[in-house]
Amino acid sequence: MFVAEYVRPKNVEEAYQALIKDKKNLIIAGGAWMKLTKKSASKLISLEGLDLNKIVATEEMIEIGSMVTLREIETNENILNTCSGILSLACHNIMGINIRNIATIGGSVMARLAFSDIYPALLVLDASLVFYKSGEVSFADFLSHPNHDPDLLLGIRISRKAEAGYFRKVAITALDFAIVNLALSKTADSWRIAVGATPFIASLAIEAANYLDQYKELNDEIIQTAVNMALDEIKVSKNQRGSKEYRIELIKTYLKRGIRSVSEHVG
């Protein structure tokens, strides 16, 4: 890749100033996918050394620094113990360990990769993004309303309210991108359902979740109705990894299995 200069700002302000100075200046996070998307940069701005690689947990939430690697998320005790560990599981299923050692959650989020396995998990964990300038933005809004003003992602907050969760990725081999991925979570009173790689970027099935919220006890009929509602909300199409029909079948099956699994866990 052609890069004129590689810089290591000493603080976030310095990094921000470098970023807004020139459109050809780019932030480099882990660099795992940079080759696939960028051919050149005037300045590559490293975020290393800005103390963005911490995972801080409280009772209600976990804040993950944007430079935390996917491998660190995969193995973090607090994240493993949150919502059936779905964010760790989502990371665990991404490519090989060598990539997970360099790929960061910040890079994964900012790249807006439609096949990303972590997006559905973040959506059902009610995640929010903490930006240097724009402050806290809900992850769902970030996905549905892209804002292209240059800014620095400092961290990601996930809620610990959910009692149980479910994550599933379907791929051709263990090293492939998803044909479809989906995640579910349930707090004491509300469900969240998210489906990604459809091949569109992940989104929440809000109506379906609200429908499930009405019932204390679920039966096959309720689950089926919720699944059908989710399929109405989520845009599905074909790409080289799978046809629309196949994706619909996968979503049907795994939403059904996911809802059952989560309701069993919460008793």
């Binding site: 051709i172 081999t173 263990a174 090293l175 492939d176 991108f177 080289q240």
Partner: peptide, 12 residues
């Protein structure tokens, strides 16, 4: 590419 042409991995 190996991203789009999937040979069996050891987990398969």
């Amino acid at each position: 590419s190996f991203l789009n042409y999937k040979i069996p991995t050891r987990l398969d």
